[in-house]
């Protein structure tokens, strides 16, 4: 158990109470075979090192996602090689490619079916904003219109290294979270909503075209000069 990470700098500085045990004392205890850590660190360590992605490819980025799991890039170095075909067993939804309006309800349904704790990576320009296909009549302008996204990876498609970088960023984000307070993971907060509404197919567009609880369109502040 010697590879339990020390407290993350964010979490150490963020806690209000002064540390009861100094790092030196903790290190001394560890040499004696006594592991002293915080529940929070242990919980975050466990969560961050076994992020199992959903085996879910949408478009071009999915090929690079597969390439990331192959021998050269070897995503298993980060504990994420276990691609699960079922959303019930997965922790991470990598939205790898263009989300069309026809596909969006299915993506949201998959997200609803995943158990907490769960994370979402928007991989590639299309998943972020519609990308090159943004002006298409059947293209959703970003999956963050319907579900919360943790990490955005730009690129068209992002290289496998970029996906690994995004995964590391996600792990750092997980390690920086607290069990209580405003920086708690989504599922530990009281205001967490477990299910996100699934839009329906309308006569011209999805109904509704976005979930206002998750997404507000950015607006421009016009400066009078």
């Amino acid at each position: 158990m010697s590879d339990v990470p020390s407290a993350h700098p964010d979490s150490a500085s963020g806690s209000a109470a002064p540390a009861l045990v100094s790092d030196q004392e903790r290190e001394e205890l560890r040499r004696q075979g006594i592991l002293l850590t915080k529940m929070e660190d242990l919980y975050n360590w466990g969560r961050s090192n076994s992020v199992w992605p959903l085996n879910f490819g949408l478009a071009c980025c999915a090929i690079e996602m597969i390439a990331a799991s192959m021998a050269r890039f070897d995503i298993s170095r980060f504990g994420s090689e276990v691609y699960r075909p079922s959303p019930r067993q997965a922790d991470l939804l990598i939205v790898s490619g263009t989300v069309t309006k026809k596909m969006a309800p299915q993506v949201i349904r998959l997200w609803n079916q995943m158990p907490e704790p769960k994370y979402c990576i928007a991989m590639g320009a299309c998943a972020i904003s519609g990308g090159p296909f943004k002006q298409g009549y059947n293209v959703l302008k970003g999956i963050d219109r319907f579900i919360p996204v943790d990490i955005y990876i730009p690129g068209c498609p992002p290289r496998p290294e970029a996906l690994l970088n995004g995964l590391i960023a996600l792990q750092e984000k997980i390690r920086g979270q607290h069990l209580t307070g405003p920086n708690a993971p989504r599922h530990l907060r009281a205001d967490d909503r477990c299910e996100y509404p699934v839009p329906e197919f309308g006569a011209h567009d999805l109904e509704p075209p976005a979930n206002p609880e998750v997404f507000q369109p950015p607006t421009i502040v016009r400066t009078e000069k």
Partner: peptide, 12 residues
């Protein structure tokens, strides 16, 4: 001008 933070609803 950077894009503003999300405005409250109805203030577009």
């Amino acid at each position: 001008t950077p894009p503003a933070p999300p405005a409250p609803e109805g203030k577009q």
